[in-house]
Nucleic acid binder design. Structure first.
Lengths: 147, 147
DNA sequence: AACTACTTGCAAGTAATTTGCATTTGTGAT
DNA sequence: ATCACAAATGCAAATTACTTGCAAGTAGTT
């Protein structure tokens, strides 16, 4: 898509270096794509947005996996078929997902975390690492086109 | 597994009939399995719990799909790899999912619905049909075995 | 410039789910 | 009860999303 902008590139290189990860072109490009994404993307969509289809899908998956482990990227459970990825540097948040077109909107703030505490010492769970809260509906665009 | 108990069978037959769906053995058996399940099951697990492995997996999937459309069964987004199904006749609720063993616990009550209203008239969404709220952590059993 | 461990592309492999099609089976009508 | 037929099923093949093995390439150190 667009090239990598210098600002970001420098930032990413430092982040990668401090985690002892190599700053490969594929990695920088994937981060750049996610940086500009308006909504969470599937691995395939990410590959599609990469400059000149030279990067293999396997590489995309491998990098997403490591970015996820480092906590830089998070995967969403909005489809039981496909994972969608976004940068996790944004404030913790949830989404509205259109069941017709799949478009998502981020929702600021999260009240669900408060609820978490109530569950911690019950139900035989040692600890709760994360939660997912997603709303599914119909965006206005899809409603108009009667989907 | 166990046979179909008469009580349930009669109930299911009526429900199916009123939706103009045939009461096939596979259908009745799948409903019976879900009725007795202690936690959401994958299509494969459902097939495994069916009497004498004669029902094809494709049939299980096709039936789950129709049961979902009728609103009798709902699928959970707890893994982006596999769908887990449960009867939706239970009170609306969410789950605790152990990231190690996959075991789930149902959580009574749902505070998330309240939050929904706040989103309805914003974000360009026409309406919100459903939401998913799942907590992921480690159940005590898995913590003990140091997973 | 050389070394080496980490990365990548490519091809093959898996797991979950879907689809095509010929055959069988519930069900309402007879 | 029997019939007719749309709906449902089994089986095999296809599809999708993702993973893995391996030889070749490369970032980052020396």
């Amino acid at each position: 898509m667009t090239g990598i902008c210098k600002q970001h590139e420098i930032h990413y290189r430092q982040a990668l270096k401090s985690s002892r990860q190599k700053a490969t072109p594929a990695r920088l490009a994937i981060l750049e794509v996610l940086e500009h994404a308006r909504h969470p993307l599937s691995a395939d969509e990410i590959k599609g947005a990469l400059p000149k289809g030279k990067t293999d899908l396997a590489t995309v998956y491998r990098n997403l996996e490591m970015l996820k482990e480092k906590g830089w990227v998070s995967a969403l459970n909005i489809s039981s078929q496909t994972a969608y990825y976004e940068l996790s540097k944004l404030e913790h948040h949830h989404h509205l997902v259109c069941e017709s077109c799949g478009r998502t909107k981020a929702l600021a703030g999260c009240k669900a975390a408060e609820l978490t505490k109530n569950f911690l010492n019950q139900k035989g769970f040692a600890r709760i690492a994360r939660h997912s809260l997603e709303y599914f509906g119909l965006c206005k665009k899809c409603e108009r086109t009667n989907n």
